[in-house]
Design a protein around this nucleic acid. Structure first.
Length: 217
DNA sequence: GACCAGGCACATC
DNA sequence: GATGTGCATGGT
């Protein structure tokens, strides 16, 4: 069985990304930078209680209030600025609200616009394109590098672009597939493929993944 | 108390 | 192009 189906059989449907609206997904993508999702949830709960889950509300909020709401997710001063930068992009380009207009843009236009925002790098941009806009852009993260390098499929030191291209050239271009695949990789990384357990005997990929094994048949 | 978490910008070589 | 550092909270 190929890699995707092994993971899928083990973990089942992941229903990513958790969030009540596309804009909340965008916010989560910023807040989860180098941060566990558990802590991000606390910050999003704070924003929700303060009714700060629209771009308009975030822009209008006192910056101190915003920063304090973000505290549980760490790097709260930086993330406050990054959220405001993202909000600015949204509000300068059409309807804001819970489902911003820019999410209708074509993938390449949306992705490059996001990458020009200070504080949004390739992973955050791809997370927004895939999980907020529901368009096929593969997300590469720490867990992707760890899982696939540990099984000898990549070195792990490749550039973000190289790894993303490798996935996208070897997969059918489909948002639902990219969505579930990345979610499965994170599930494996969170639950089994931990930093201090290089070879996990519970890994659904087992120890018999070979260099030529396909990502998806 | 050390290590880790769904990164990114910036300085330096 | 590669490597190092600051940013910060909360769980294990």
């Amino acid at each position: 069985m190929d890699i995707y189906h092994r993971l899928n059989a083990f973990f089942g449907p992941r229903h990513w990304w958790p969030g009540d609206s596309p804009f909340e997904v965008m916010v989560g993508a910023i807040l989860t930078q180098n941060t566990s999702w558990r802590n991000v949830e606390k910050a999003i709960d704070n924003l929700s209680r303060l009714a700060l889950l629209t771009p308009e509300a975030i822009e209008a909020a006192p910056t101190d209030t915003l920063a304090q709401a973000l505290r549980p997710s760490g790097y709260y001063n930086i993330k406050k600025d990054r959220l405001l930068s993202l909000v600015r992009l949204v509000l300068e380009n059409g309807r804001g609200g819970a489902d911003p207009e820019i999410l209708r843009w074509p993938i390449s236009k949306l992705r490059s616009a996001l990458l020009e925002v200070k504080g949004i790098g390739p992973e955050t941009a791809d997370s927004i394109v895939l999980y907020a806009a529901n368009k096929p852009s593969f997300v590469v993260d720490l867990y992707t590098r760890r899982l696939f390098s540990r099984h000898g499929l990549i070195l792990g030191s490749e550039s973000y672009q190289d790894i993303r291209s490798w996935f996208m050239e070897n997969l059918v271009c489909d948002a639902a597939l990219f969505n579930q695949y990345h979610a499965l990789i994170v599930a494996a990384g969170n639950k089994l493929c931990k930093p201090k357990t290089p070879l996990c005997n519970m890994c659904p990929l087992g120890d018999d993944v070979f260099l030529d094994e396909s990502l998806l048949v």
